[in-house]
Write a protein that binds this DNA or RNA. Structure first.
Length: 914
RNA sequence: GGGGGAUUAGCUCAGUUGGUUAGAGCGCCUGCUUGACAUGCAGGAGGCCGGCAGUUCGAGUCUGCCAUCUCCCA
């Protein structure tokens, strides 16, 4: 093995091999319980960002883990057509050529978008591959594919015929830049400091100069006012009921209406009503049969109805109108005002509420089963707090505006007969009117919201409306992994579609992960310029490092704060594992492995026997030391804890378990103990230790594979843990190896892995640390050989230590280590008290008595404060009486132990003082 | 305005149903080119667990209020 491993070559090579061998593919003919995950389809215009990296790392962990467990796994990949975003991108490209989409015409423009997609649409998919995502790429889908388009049309026609789709003149969110309606979810509210303009509206027929004051944040909309409103019980304006108001500038006569909507405490308690430009005013207008006057064009300029302002941009108009009102003395005052303003989620333009004919889906009937799914426990969010968010939204659901005034997307399949005006929905391209048989038909010009195809993703991707065998096999899927931002956009709607069209929910668990932020807590975004490009991180650190670091740092559902140096965690860990493996291989004396022809990546010698690290290791209990047993116990615990972490979606816990086991238990302690044996003469012992080293490494590699797929696959082969020499044989892939399971208790008992041994080794570690600290405290360089004496506290410790002397001596770099239960220091010497015994470090020359007393005094202080705490508890009668027996007993034991330790330290101090 | 989340070591964060003397990584200090690894090894310092009440034998953990920061919805 090479001293440093070439991450990029290895990662590229393994991904290619996995792809070539179809390792990610499965279908209904494969055995095993199905396990299916639907990728949240990224936008085809998208570029991989850290959010994607986290999202897909988590999915890949789940998928690779379940695959190793023997499940029949499909991870369905694909992209969505991102109607508005993609159209924007292509329009921008056209603009550079000095053209608009209208110059091309609808068909040519769509052709152009497809071209763009062919050329650039694969970017994010390639990036996901760099990350190591084990998607079933043979199944890759696109929401504009023929099959998915058919599903969209099928669904539209069904809902239309059921009466759940309707067209209405309604106030929608209009993006004046994209020239299209947006759904409520696509209009993002941002807090803005605006102005609240208080404007005087003269009263008709009142005293001269009588006026009322209305407050508005959008003065330009007053041109569309058709009434003013007050609260029905607001006595202040009782005299207004018989009067009318004059709209400034246009001199339109306005009715005074009374409506509950008006908050008498806000502003002056009187509001202007603009039914065509405000959702609340629209509803008031409905209730009072008010005229709707649209004063704006689709591009945000004022139209003819705006009179003198026709043709001006809405914001220019606002300025001018204020100027004009000011000139007429009609501005009462202008206050600063904080409010939330809708912005287009694609282009960040201020959204304009606008009256226009749009298509809607009636959501209430669809929401019912989706709500029930949560209540009856069929559906679960992890973490559970998202249950409430989902429930709230569904309980107050509003109809979904699904029409978009753009060209790129699924065209609304509604046709109108020119002859008889019959309107109907149909799949495909009907030739004749079903009513009158005329051939002159027109199709609705609008296209559907992109999410109208995404909400069908869990079944349309398997060929629905055809009842395919794969659909029957994999639907419903199991886990959905996504971010909270799209619970409304996507998750809830998929559940609704599942019940409506598949008679059942599309997945049972929704894991919601946090948002990736920069280390200042800002959401990472391209426009803020704080984005870390995952591809750069992969280049600098490796995909494995990116994945491990993200996993380790992301606590369940919490936001994760990232900066570049965080990825050192994963890189360093990878290096550590590589070197541990390299060390073991060096001990085996295997001839240097030959470079394979194509990749130059090294593998095991063709002559070498494969090493089985999957089956039960054949260990001779008579040859096992306490350290061996301790490690086996720790390995067992790591297997249990790692699986438990994954089961509970606590990926950071799983990562921590593996990090702690590999780095600290395996490398820091076991490998160091092992060196004594490996460099020694006892061949039987040596083989035993090598077997454990290999076995533990092999098991750790399998546990790590879902998080760090590349490094583990490479080492699996380089270490010869596969039965096949051929690196392209899937049977030899770690990704196909079985997931480690705990040994039966009896096995551990047979090996002598028990609590007493584990505790002994923990205490031995403590003793070694004490010895090293003594060294450090007395300025003795680490490699200077010195003597130590241990005085064990009891006979059992004495026996264990005596037979284990060599291992302690080695790790203490001791020239001689004496175990002596009766030891009494002939002179004052540095010492420390541990759980196993008292450790002495004889020093040549005189000891600084005062300094040593102070040092031991420090230790004593800690112990005494511990005793005080426990004693306080135990002397509390209520505690002893009411706390569980086991807890009290534990405290008593701790107290006893600490007191013994205190006594020993005190005696040491006495001795030294002489 | 409604709802959620956060507040623990200098920094970034764990801490699952309340129960050992509260942990990790990074950073910091000291010493090490020890025959896997300086992307490393050994040792060390560093915490009134945001504040105030309450429940309890016992609170970082549960409840209420307050403060600060953040997100979602209107």
């Amino acid at each position: 093995m090479e001293k440093n491993y070439d991450t990029h070559r290895i990662e590229d090579q393994w991904y290619q091999t996995w792809m070539e061998t179809g390792a990610f593919h499965s279908d209904h003919t494969q055995g095993g319980e199905p396990y299916c995950v639907m990728i949240p389809p990224p936008n085809v215009t998208g570029i991989l960002h850290m959010g994607h990296a986290l999202n897909n790392t988590i999915q890949d962990i789940l998928v690779r883990w379940r695959r190793m467990e023997g499940r029949n796994v499909v991870w369905m990949p694909g992209t969505d057509h991102a109607g508005i975003a993609t159209q924007n991108v292509v329009e921008r490209a056209l603009a550079k050529e000095g053209k608009t989409r209208d110059d091309l015409g609808r068909d040519a423009f769509i052709e152009r978008v497809w071209q763009w997609r062919e050329e650039y649409g694969g970017t994010i998919v390639r990036q996901l591959k760099r990350l190591g995502a084990s998607c079933d790429w043979e199944r890759e889908r696109f929401t504009m594919d023929e099959g998915l388009s058919e599903a969209v049309a099928e669904v539209f026609v069904r809902l239309y015929n059921k009466g759940l789709i309707y067209r209405a003149n309604y106030i929608i969110n209009w993006c004046p830049r994209c020239h299209t309606a947006l759904s409520d979810e696509e209009s993002e509210h941002q807090d803005c400091v605006g102005k609240l303009y208080h404007i005087r509206y003269p009263v008709q027929g009142g005293a001269k100069g009588e006026y009322v004051v209305v407050a508005t944040t959008r003065p330009e909309t007053l041109l569309g006012d058709t009434a003013v409103a007050v609260h029905p019980e607001d006595a202040r304006y009782a005299d207004l009921d018989q009067k009318t108001i004059v709209l400034p500038i246009l001199d339109r006569e306005l009715r005074v209406i009374r409506d509950d909507y008006v908050d008498p405490k806000f502003g002056t308690g009187i509001v202007k009503v603009t039914p065509a430009h405000d959702p609340n005013d629209f509803e008031m207008g409905q209730r009072h049969s008010l005229e709707q006057i649209n004063v704006m064009n689709g591009d945000g300029t004022m139209n003819e109805a705006a009179g003198p302002y026709a043709g001006m941009d809405r914001f220019a108009c606002r300025k001018q109108i204020l100027k004009d009102l000011e000139a007429q003395g009609l501005i009462e005052k202008i206050d600063d005002h904080h409010h939330a303003v809708g912005h287009c989620y694609r282009c960040d333009t201020v959204v304009e509420p606008r009256l226009s004919p749009q298509w809607f889906v009636k959501m209430a009937p669809l929401a019912e089963p989706a709500l029930a799914a949560l209540e009856n426990g069929e559906l679960n969010f992890v973490p559970a707090r998202w249950n409430k968010v989902y429930t709230e939204w569904l309980s107050n659901i509003r109809d979904w505006c699904i029409s978009r005034q753009i060209w790129w997307g699924h065209r609304i399949p509604v046709f109108t007969c020119t002859a008889c005006q019959h309107e109907w929905a149909a799949k495909g391209c009907p030739d004749l009117c079903p009513e009158c048989g005329a051939a002159e038909l027109s199709q609705d010009e609008d296209v559907l919201d992109t999410w109208f195809s995404s909400w069908l993703w869990p079944f349309s991707t398997f060929g629905w409306p055809d009842q395919t065998e794969d659909l029957a096999c994999y639907y419903p899927t199991q886990d959905l992994v996504t971010a909270s931002e799209i619970i409304f956009f996507w998750v809830a709607r998929m559940v609704m579609a599942g019940y409506e069209f598949m008679d059942g929910l599309p997945f049972d668990t929704v894991y919601i992960h946090g948002t990736v932020r920069d280390d200042a807590g800002k959401k990472m975004s391209k426009s803020l310029g704080n984005a870390l490009d995952p591809l750069d991180v992969i280049k600098e650190f490796s995909a494995d490092a990116l994945r491990f670091s993200l996993t380790m740092l992301t606590a369940t559902g919490q936001d994760v704060y990232i900066s570049k140096d965080k990825f050192e965690i994963g890189r360093n860990f990878g290096t550590k594992i590589w070197n541990a493996a390299r060390f073991i291989q060096m001990q085996c004396g295997d001839p240097p492995p030959p470079a394979s022809q194509d990749s130059g990546v090294t593998g095991p010698d063709a002559e070498a026997e494969p090493r089985d690290v999957v089956g039960l290791p054949v260990l001779d209990p008579a040859l096992l030391t306490a350290d061996d047993r301790h490690l086996l116990g720790k390995l067992q615990q790591a297997v249990i804890d790692c699986s438990a972490g994954l089961e509970k979606y606590r990926f950071n816990d799983a990562a921590h378990v593996l990090y702690e086991f590999v780095w600290h238990q395996y490398c820091d302690w076991y490998v160091e103990y092992a060196k004594e044996t490996l460099y020694g003469e006892d061949v039987a012992r040596r083989n035993q230790v090598l077997l454990i080293l290999h076995y533990a490494l092999g098991t750790a590699l399998r546990l790590l594979h879902p998080i760090m797929p590349f490094l583990t696959e490479e080492l699996w082969h380089a270490m010869g843990y596969t039965a096949t020499i051929d690196r392209k044989d899937p049977a030899g892939f770690i990704m196909k190896a079985p997931w480690p399971t705990p040994w039966p208790d009896q096995q551990l008992t047979d090996w002598g892995v028990d609590a007493a041994t584990t505790e002994y080794v923990e205490r031995k570690h403590e003793l070694i640390r004490l010895g090293r600290t003594l060294r450090a405290d007395f300025g003795i360089v680490p490699n200077k050989a010195i003597d130590y004496i241990v005085k064990p506290h009891d006979a059992e410790g004495a026996t264990r230590l005596e037979s284990d002397r060599a291992s302690v001596a080695a790790l203490l770099k001791a020239q001689m280590l004496t175990v002596d239960e009766a030891f009494e220091p002939p002179q004052a010497m540095p010492s420390s008290v541990g759980g196993l015994g008292t450790l002495y470090m004889p020093l040549a020359g005189l000891l600084d008595v005062e300094a040593e007393v102070a040092r031991l005094g420090g230790q004593l202080e800690k112990v005494v404060s511990g005793i005080n705490q426990i004693t306080r508890k135990l002397s509390n009668r209520a505690f002893v009486e009411r706390a569980p027996e086991a807890v009290v007993e534990q405290q008593r034991e701790n107290q006893k132990e600490l007191m013994e330790k205190r006594d020993k330290i005190e005696r040491l101090i006495e001795t030294i003082k002489g």
